[in-house]
Each structure stands twice: as structure tokens, then as C-alpha cells.
Computed example of a mutant assay.
Amino acid sequence: MAIREIVTFPDERLRQICAPVTEFDAALKELTDDMFETMYDDEGIGLAAPQIGIEKRIVVIDIPEEDGKQGKNKLVLINPKITAKEGEVASEEGCLSVPEYRAEIKRYEKITLECQDLNGQKQIYEADGLLAICMQHELDHLDGKLFIDYLSRLKRDRLLTKYRKLKKEQARAHE
């Protein structure tokens, strides 16, 4: 297993629409293991493949237990799609690809999600609460969408200006 570098906003790779997974092999298992390790290293609860520069429809999620520990609720979602949705809920979200920024976003309260597991077998999940929110957030990544796309244009533009300035400062520091 290896910790991969997380692609951060405004990198254009985050805007790509990901291709379906067609091979369910040892390389896929290794990739999802790396994704979990990367997610845990950055204290996340979900990670989509494009966040590590892989344009494939792969998501890993691990919602912590009541005591905050992770590892018991690991989900690997291959080629996921939401097939039913209902209600609306607002929640504060953050993203490993948009570090140090959080915003209130409206999502569906309950969803049904179909996907494949690491063996290519069809899985169906009915989710609500934090799991439903996390699933929707991560699936957005597979279609080149970020949670900040739900913000007003003014807030998005301010954030973009801030991140571009930060990227320039980081680039100068590495010269």
C-alpha cells in the first residue's frame, strides 16, 4: 500500500468525467488499498479516484464509528450510480481536494446506490445521513463536479482567487 498525492483545486484533472472500470483484478484491489491509506492519512471519510489523478469510476468510503475510529465500515464502490433519491438535507462539507474550506451544501436526504464490488458483483445500498451525503459528494467527483460548485458564483470566484494565489506562492517556494 502507498499514500498517493491528492490533486487539489483548481487542478483541471478534478473536472474530468471518469471512465467506467472494466477490469476487476489485483491492480484494482491494490489501487483501492492505496486510496484507503491516502484517505486515512488525510483524515478523510471518502475519496474518489480522480482525487489521486486516476480517471476511473472508483470511490472508497469509511464512515467512522461512534468513537471516531475507522476501519469497520469500509466501502468500495465501483461504477456507482444513484438510482433513487428523496428529501433534502443541508450539511457542512469539506473536501480533501479543497483543503481548509468548508461550506453548507444541500444534498438528497436518502439515496439508493447501485455499484459493483471489487469482484465485479452488483451491490445495492440504501443510505441516509452522513453516508448518503458522503456518497453523493464522492460520486460528484466522478463527473468532474466539486462541492464548491453548489456555492454562489461570488463565493466560488473568491475561493478560486484564493487558491490560485496560494498555488503561486507554493510554486515560488519550491523554486
Rank of each mutant, 00 (worst) to 15 (best):
V7D: 09
T8N: 05
T8L: 06
T8A: 03
P10M: 11
D11Y: 03
E12S: 15
E12R: 14
E12C: 05
R13E: 02
L14Y: 06
L14F: 04
R15I: 12
I17L: 12
I17P: 00
I17F: 05
I17M: 09
I17D: 07
C18M: 13
A19R: 15
A19I: 13
P20I: 06
P20C: 08
V21N: 01
T22M: 12
E23N: 12
F24A: 01
F24I: 05
D25Y: 12
A26N: 11
A27T: 14
A27G: 10
A27L: 10
L28E: 10
K29D: 12
L31Q: 11
L31R: 14
T32D: 01
E37T: 09
Y40T: 06
D41R: 08
D41W: 00
E43H: 11
E43L: 09
G44K: 08
G44A: 04
I45K: 01
G46W: 06
G46I: 01
L47E: 08
L47A: 07
A48Q: 05
P50W: 02
P50S: 02
Q51Y: 05
Q51G: 02
I52V: 15
G53I: 04
I54A: 02
E55Y: 03
E55C: 11
R57M: 08
R57N: 06
V60A: 06
I61M: 08
I61V: 14
D62Y: 09
E65N: 13
E66D: 01
E66M: 05
K69G: 05
K72E: 08
N73K: 11
K74C: 03
L75S: 03
L75R: 12
L75G: 01
V76T: 13
L77S: 08
L77K: 10
I78T: 02
I78R: 02
K81E: 13
T83K: 10
T83W: 05
E86H: 10
E88P: 00
E88L: 13
V89Q: 14
A90T: 14
A90N: 14
S91E: 13
E92H: 04
E93L: 10
G94Y: 10
C95H: 05
L96G: 03
S97G: 06
S97A: 08
V98I: 15
P99C: 03
E104D: 09
I105Y: 10
K106S: 09
K106I: 14
K106R: 14
R107Y: 11
Y108Q: 11
Y108W: 15
E109M: 07
K110F: 06
K110N: 08
K110C: 07
L113V: 15
L113G: 07
L113M: 13
E114F: 00
Q116V: 07
Q116S: 11
L118S: 01
L118Q: 10
N119Q: 15
N119G: 07
G120P: 03
Q121S: 13
K122W: 00
Q123D: 01
I124K: 14
Y125T: 08
Y125F: 15
D128I: 03
D128L: 02
L130W: 05
L130K: 10
L131R: 08
L131I: 12
L131D: 06
L131Q: 12
A132G: 01
A132D: 00
M135P: 13
M135R: 04
M135V: 15
Q136R: 06
H137Q: 09
E138W: 07
E138H: 08
E138A: 07
L139D: 03
D140A: 07
D140N: 12
H141N: 07
L142N: 10
L142Y: 08
D143N: 15
D143S: 13
K145M: 09
